[in-house]
Design a protein around this nucleic acid. Structure first.
Length: 399
DNA sequence: AGGTATTCACATGAAACTATTCTCTGAGTTAGG
DNA sequence: TAACTCAGAGAATAGTTTCATGTGAATACCTGT
């Protein structure tokens, strides 16, 4: 057995890999040229260029669907700008913050605290009043005569969670500062996000706008080819693989990131299966694997209450194809009585079910049954392998 | 028959509450001078 | 007397509960024919 293991590892080492430069298709990879985004990059560049002369830069709002290269383009443009500023001695800083990251910048306090830390202040995670953190931030930034470009990625998440007051405060920061200047670059996946914004915030935040349209199939093919050329050894990709991958992404509203992920996973699958080439069937498998992994990851990391609720959904929906919230809740109450779990209210359970729907683990839609009320009609997702998940849940809930 | 009113069974929203984690402050305590 | 300790007051936050209000269409109930 152990001998076999050693052999396995040795073989693994000796094995010829199909990857040449694997990191070229990993999501963290930043390509040196960004295809099909010249127009947008030029727009961004011309908008932020005045910062090189220490002039005020208009606030910029960028939006487009996921995987359309927004973040990449902004990072690319600003890093070039920063390089130049450095060499010319222009006092310019960019601060990039992803507002979606939990525990980093998803509330007003944390966002400002993060900014203050970027400016060299030591701010605790909690305990201080928010106004105090603002003060610290101002005091550290206000001293120098510097221009800051503040890039807020996924700004819609922040606004949804913490309200648009923060954004209003941010747009007004300049009025409080004597020397320094701050300009905002907001990036959002949500296309209607701006419309639901407070008009005051809206007008000052989106002084300039840049739209990133989805990639079309040929463009995605182009991108995939470029990356694949770097990532894989020549001749590894079978005929039609790129096309298939691009077609998949086009279906997913032109999400290049997804396409690259599928290609990477397909490559990993091929390699693990000892196949010298990546074939079309690997793509299919990769798609499926990604979805499955996503679901099982979500399920296993959920808290107990969520698991209990999901278990209730599975159990009640098992034979019937669809169930209503009330039935799930009834089962759930019985379950909590049996397991000693503190039962949540129906209100809460309703929200949890809605969340599962968001995750795509189940399909729930609100229907009206006329005289018989209004409720959610819950279907199981076709991706969900009921038996497997049930087992996992049973174990987690020790039933 | 056609039209209006009810009604159900939750959905959805907002506010308030709970528990936890953390800072800051000032009173009390301690140890050394 | 300076340094230290420690409890209490305030904050931020996540996860809920409580209270209030909303809602879409199948039925019940009319109304005039």
């Amino acid at each position: 057995m152990q001998k076999g293991l050693t052999n396995f590892f040795e073989e693994y080492l000796a094995r010829d890999t199909i990857f040449a430069e694997k990191k070229a298709i990993q999501s963290s990879y930043i390509p040196s040229i960004i295809s099909h985004r010249d127009e947008q990059i030029n727009q961004i560049a011309s908008i932020i260029a005045p910062s090189l002369k220490s002039e005020r830069v208009s606030n910029l709002f960028i939006y487009g669907k996921p995987g359309t290269g927004k973040t990449l383009s902004v990072k690319h443009t600003t890093s070039k700008l920063l390089e130049l500023a450095k060499s010319k001695g222009v006092p310019l800083s960019t601060i990039y913050i992803n507002c979606k990251l939990k525990k980093v910048a998803d509330t007003e306090y944390r966002l400002i605290a993060h900014l203050a830390r970027e400016c060299g202040k030591d701010v605790p995670d909690t305990g201080l009043p928010t106004s105090e953190v603002y003060r610290m931030f101002f005091s550290s930034i206000g001293a120098s005569e510097k221009t800051y470009l503040l890039i807020l990625d996924e700004i819609d998440v922040l606004a949804k969670k913490a309200g648009d007051e923060i954004l209003y405060n941010l747009t007004r920061i300049n009025e409080e500062l004597k020397n320094a200047q701050i300009s905002l670059i907001g990036i959002s996946n949500d296309l209607v996000f701006v419309d639901n914004l407070d008009p005051r915030v809206k007008s000052s935040l989106s002084e300039e706008e840049v739209v990133f349209p989805p990639y079309n199939a040929p463009q995605i093919q182009g991108i995939l080819k470029e990356r694949a050329q770097l990532a894989f050894k020549p001749g590894v990709l079978a005929e039609g693989v790129i096309e298939k991958c691009a077609a998949y992404a086009a279906r997913e509203h032109g999400d290049a990131r997804r396409a690259l992920e599928v290609l990477r996973v397909a490559g990993e699958l091929a390699e693990r299966g000892n196949s010298p080439t990546v074939s079309i069937s690997h793509i299919d498998q990769a798609e499926e694997k990604i979805e499955k992994d996503r679901i099982s990851h979500i399920i296993s990391t959920q808290p107990k209450q969520y698991q209990a609720i999901l278990y209730s959904v599975l159990q009640t929906a098992e034979k019937k194809e669809h169930v209503f919230t009330g039935e799930v809740y009834e089962f759930y109450r019985a379950l909590t009585a049996k397991t000693g779990l503190r039962p949540l209210t129906q209100r809460r359970v309703s929200d949890v079910i809605a969340e599962f729907d968001m995750f795509g683990i189940i399909n729930a839609k609100v229907i009206s049954k006329g005289r018989y009320g209004r409720t959610r009609e819950i279907f199981l997702s076709p991706h969900l392998q009921t038996e497997n998940v049930t087992l996992v849940l049973q174990k987690a809930l020790d039933l």
